[in-house]
C-alpha cells in the first residue's frame, strides 16, 4: 500500500494467517482424526496432531462395506457414482446451455422471448422449493435409483445459459459476417468459431458445476434407495446416525476427507478459472 508502515503491514500478515488457520481448523481436525485408531478417538481430549494410521483407515474406508453392523456402499463405489453424476451434470448443463444461448443470441425466431423467460424462471425454482412434486415426476417416469434420475432433473441451467449469452454478445458481429462470407453456416460457425472462443468460459463453468454436482445432497437423498446408487457425500449422514450409538470417528472423518477432496482439488488447481467462473456467472 501507500505508506511504509512495517508494523501495519506485519499485522496484516498476522491477521491473514489467523484467518486462514481459523478457516482451515475444521479440516485439520478432520485430517487428524482420520490418522488415528478408533480406540484413540474415544478418549477425551482428542488428539490435535496426526497419528500413524492414515493408510490403514484409508484402505478400510475405500473397500469395506461393513460399517458398525450396517451395510453400505464401499467408498470407491460411491466415489465412482459421485464422479459420474458430477461429470454428467457439469457436461450436461454446459452442452444444453451452450446450445440454447446460441439459439437465443444468434437467431430471431417466433417464441424466442418465451423460451428465454422459461429458462429465466428456472432461476427462481431451486430443487429445495419443489421437492415433493419433482420427486413425483421422477418417480412416475421410473427414474428413481438411476443415473438419469440423479442428473437430468438438475441439468437445466439459467445461470450457465446467461453466462454463455453474455459471452456470445461480446463476440464481434464482424466475426459472424466474416464467417458467412467464408461460407460457414450456423452450425459450422458454432463449431468452428464460437465454441473455440468460449473455451475459457466453458472451463470456468465446468469448475463451478463440477463442484455443484459433486456436492448434491438433498436430491440424491430423495431418489436413491439402493445403497449401490449412493453418492459419497450422502453416505456421511448415515454414518453420523450410526455414530450416535457407537462413534467411529476415524472412519467417518476419513470418509469426509475423501469426499471433500475432489472438488477442493478442482477448485485449487483451477483457481483462476474458478474465480472467473464465480464472478462471471453472477453477472
Amino acid at each position: 500500500m501507500i505508506e511504509r508502515r512495517p508494523l501495519l503491514s506485519f499485522s496484516s500478515h498476522v491477521i491473514m494467517v489467523i484467518g486462514i488457520i481459523a478457516v482451515a481448523l475444521p479440516v485439520w481436525i478432520t485430517f487428524v482424526a482420520a490418522t488415528h485408531t478408533t480406540e484413540r478417538m474415544l478418549v477425551s481430549p482428542l488428539p490435535l496432531l496426526p497419528g500413524t494410521h492414515f493408510w490403514e483407515n484409508l484402505k478400510m474406508v475405500l473397500f469395506t462395506q461393513e460399517f458398525l453392523g450396517t451395510t453400505r456402499a464401499p467408498v470407491w463405489l460411491s466415489m465412482t457414482n459421485s464422479l459420474i453424476i458430477a461429470l454428467s451434470i457439469a457436461i450436461g448443463k454446459i452442452v444444453i446451455s451452450l446450445l440454447s444461448a446460441f439459439a437465443i443470441v444468434y437467431f430471431r425466431f417466433p417464441g424466442r422471448m418465451l423460451f428465454f423467460w422459461m429458462i429465466f424462471i428456472t432461476l427462481m425454482l431451486p430443487v429445495e422449493v419443489r421437492i415433493l412434486p419433482t420427486f413425483e415426476v421422477v418417480a412416475n417416469l421410473g427414474m428413481l435409483d438411476s443415473y438419469w434420475g440423479l442428473t437430468i432433473p438438475l441439468i437445466a441451467s439459467a445461470t450457465a445459459t446467461f453466462m454463455f449469452r453474455q459471452a456470445f454478445l461480446t463476440v464481434p458481429d464482424e466475426l459472424l459476417e466474416a464467417a458467412r462470407l467464408d461460407g460457414a453456416g450456423p452450425l459450422k460457425f458454432f463449431w468452428d468459431i464460437l465454441l473455440p472462443l468460449s473455451r475459457t468460459n466453458i472451463a470456468a463453468l465446468f469448475v463451478i458445476l463440477f463442484t455443484f454436482g459433486w456436492n448434491q445432497y438433498l436430491w440424491p437423498l430423495l431418489i436413491t434407495t439402493k445403497t449401490e446408487m449412493h453418492t459419497v457425500v450422502m453416505s456421511i449422514k448415515q454414518m453420523l446416525e450410526v455414530a450416535e450409538a457407537v462413534p467411529q470417528w476415524n472412519i467417518i472423518m476419513m470418509t469426509s476427507l475423501v469426499a471433500m477432496l475432489p472438488p477442493i482439488l478442482v477448485v485449487v488447481l483451477m483457481q483462476r478459472l474458478f474465480v472467473k467462473g464465480l464472478v462471471e456467472s453472477e453477472k
Binding site: P172, E174, A178, L181, I193, P196, L197
Partner: peptide
C-alpha cells in the same frame, strides 16, 4: 470483404 476491426478468427 476486409472489415474495419479486421474480424480475424482469434483462435
Amino acid at each position: 470483404m476486409v472489415f474495419q476491426n479486421y474480424a480475424l478468427y482469434p483462435h
